[in-house]
């Protein structure tokens, strides 16, 4: 059987790459894609733990399922916001939307 560490290392790498994307990218859509990578990493962890460590092997599955659902909802909503931002500012680049700064 494949050792669990393999999956965990894969998920850690995937998570780090996703986080790099969130920090480095300018386009809001690309940032969203990077967030999807991070969510996938988390889901892999859940499933791996469920399969390897949980005698019932079900709670982790459900969590992964919910992570996927929430990710889908998040993408739908966030893309709506991106479109709105694009209409208002003619750009989808997050560093041009800096009205948070006084």
């Amino acid at each position: 059987m494949i050792p669990i560490e393999n999956f965990l290392i894969l998920s850690a790498l995937l998570f780090a790459i996703g986080f790099y994307g969130v920090m480095a990218r300018r386009s809001a859509i690309l940032i969203l894609m990077s967030v999807e990578l991070m969510l996938a990493a988390v889901a892999i962890n859940f499933i791996a733990f469920a399969t390897y460590l949980d005698a019932d092997a079900f709670s982790g599955l459900v969590f992964a399922l919910f992570v996927i659902t929430v990710a889908a909802a998040e993408v739908g909503l966030a893309l709506g916001i991106v479109l709105r931002l694009y209409r208002e500012r003619r750009t989808a680049n997050v560093d041009e939307a800096d009205s948070l700064k006084w």
Partner: peptide, 17 residues
Amino acid sequence: LKFLQTGKIPNYALGMA
């Protein structure tokens, strides 16, 4: 310390990381 508040989301994400 105002310069820390750039208003740019990637900067905040970096801080969080």
